[in-house]
């Protein structure tokens, strides 16, 4: 059986004017279903580019990338959107919640694009808010919630389509250390339930929650320890 994520010699090259920037340079790595991975490295090391490729927000310049049974390097825009909708749950550093929109509506947003009827959307979003401990805040707007609470709404949103993979880009970057710890415990719990969690971070304490750490430097993996 093949791994959940298979990268084979993938490169990503950005062209800026005359200069070419090799953000990823021949990366090969496999991640199995149910793993808990921290992707580390300095800024500009290629770790964010790697995450974007895994989440189908971008496509590699060369190499083969299979995620959740699909060859992402060969998919068209609509198929990529469909993949993001069903296989990936994103969590961002800045939460990226819609302002003036209640927590439950924010959490239900991905369901709007995966064709779930309106009645079910609310129910499923509410269930995920309960799961992250915000069931009693479902009608609050982002402005009325603390940073930690907002990030938990964002995690509920990432979970609402039952994705195989949660991709979290610096999920604690905007939070204080106590709140960070609360949010990380949610990721720990999700991984225990069998969801593959991949987080990008530059904080060692955050990375220590993961069971495997992959370190990038200059577009290459320089360390991969379990």
């Amino acid at each position: 059986m093949s791994a959940l994520i298979e990268c084979e010699d993938i490169s990503k090259v950005y062209t800026m004017g005359d200069t070419q920037i090799r953000a990823l340079d021949g990366v090969s790595v496999a991640i199995e279903a149910g793993e808990y991975v921290a992707v580390m490295g300095a800024s500009g090391s290629g770790k964010s580019t790697f995450m974007n490729l895994l989440g189908a927000l971008d496509q590699p310049t060369s190499g083969a990338l299979r995620v959740d049974g699909r060859a992402l390097d060969a998919l068209g825009p609509d198929a990529l959107a469909e993949f993001r909708s069903h296989s990936i749950g994103f969590v961002f550093q800045q939460f990226n919640l819609l302002p003036r929109t209640s927590a439950v509506e924010n959490a239900a947003l991905p369901l709007v694009y995966s064709g779930v009827p309106a009645g079910q959307r609310r129910k499923r979003a509410q269930a995920r808010l309960d799961q992250v401990g915000l069931g009693d805040r479902s009608h609050h707007h982002p402005k009325q919630l603390s940073g930690g609470q907002q990030q938990r709404v964002a995690i509920a949103r990432a979970l609402v389509n039952d994705p195989a993979i949660i991709l979290a880009d610096e999920p604690t970057g905007a939070l204080d250390s106590r709140t960070s710890e609360e949010v990380m415990r949610i990721f720990d719990g999700l991984n225990r339930e069998g969801i593959t969690v991949i987080l990008v971070t530059h904080e060692q304490e955050v990375a220590d929650h993961a069971k495997r750490q992959i370190v990038f430097r200059d577009g290459k993996i320089v360390e991969d320890r379990s």
Binding site: P77, A81, E82, R84, F90, N96, P110, Y113
Partner: peptide, 16 residues
């Protein structure tokens, strides 16, 4: 713009 990026990330197609 960020809202558009978010919608794309959670599965919106370009035509949406």
């Amino acid at each position: 713009t960020r809202e558009i990026g978010l919608r794309l990330a959670v599965g919106a197609r370009r035509r949406d």
